[in-house]
């Protein structure tokens, strides 16, 4: 067994730090090459459409269903608290603001990391382990352009759209619970909401959040797949890493962006 001296421990810290910097550098180069490297691919648009389908359209069911449930839960909880102050009409405003500012982008980001992100990592990792990436390279097609780029763009486009749909069905789910079920007066539900929700401050800021999450989650997912050990354990480890890193990144960045956007109230 290796003795753990003080110097040895310091060395371990140093090595870990170097590893982190190396991964950051590698993944940045990867992203640059994939997105802005020279040499386009014929039929690139067709590839993008295909990825939009498997990354975006196939993630729709989970997003819609979760959106309805979360909107409904918000309305239920909001109602039970607000009704103590006699201001249950404010439930619409609470549901809408919570969804637009926080839960829409964040929950969509987390679900996207779990549904589409893990699938991307596993798919690309599998291509790597079956030598499909090497094979593309030897056929003379840059896999960064052919495999990575369409998936990255598809993720960047899909997640913000999904977050918007999540918020819409969430608000609908909230109104369904609050108005149709708990009996909040419909007019005050919507007018309270419309008075307090600002398009630029709430809708657009939420959209900006989801764009940032889309960028980070897709980047992590595609890079982890591309960089994984081409073995079955390597792929499963990379998939786990995608979900963990992407979720942490979403939550951490959400805190930072919330502080920047809504902090000086």
């Amino acid at each position: 067994m290796r003795r753990k001296t003080l110097i040895g421990r310091v060395r371990l810290v140093g090595r870990a730090a170097i590893d982190v910097v190396q991964v950051l550098g590698r993944s940045s180069l990867f992203l640059l090459h994939a997105l802005f490297g020279r040499g386009g691919i014929a039929g690139g648009f067709q590839l993008l459409v295909q990825q939009l389908y498997s990354v975006g359209v196939l993630s729709l069911p989970i997003i819609i269903v979760s959106g309805v449930f979360i909107g409904g839960v918000l309305a239920l909880q909001g109602f039970s608290i607000l009704t103590q102050y006699g201001s249950e009409q404010a439930v619409g405003q609470m549901v809408a603001l919570t969804l637009l500012r926080e839960l829409g982008p964040v929950v969509t980001g987390l679900l996207f990391a779990g549904r589409a992100g893990s699938a991307l990592t596993a798919e690309i990792g599998n291509m790597k382990s079956t030598e499909q990436l090497s094979s593309l390279e030897m056929i003379g097609v840059d896999p960064l352009k052919y495999i990575a780029a369409p998936r990255l763009w598809a993720g960047f486009i899909s997640l913000p759209l999904l977050a918007l749909m999540f918020s819409v069905v969430g608000v609908w789910g909230g109104s369904w619970v609050a108005v149709d079920w708990l009996g909040v007066y419909e007019g005050s539900f919507w007018s309270n909401m419309q008075n307090s929700v600002s398009f630029t401050d709430d809708v657009l800021n939420g959209l900006i959040k989801s764009v940032v999450f889309a960028f980070v989650v897709t980047w992590i997912a595609v890079f982890q797949g591309y960089d994984c050990d081409p073995t079955s354990e390597g792929i499963s480890r990379a998939t786990t890493r995608t979900v963990v890193y992407a979720s942490l990144a979403v939550l951490g960045l959400d805190f930072i962006m919330t502080a920047l956007m809504f902090g000086d109230f």
Partner: peptide, 12 residues
């Protein structure tokens, strides 16, 4: 690489 063909172990 267009002048090279490779047959990979797994077929790929």
């Amino acid at each position: 690489r267009k002048n090279m063909g490779v047959l990979f172990q797994s077929g790929a």
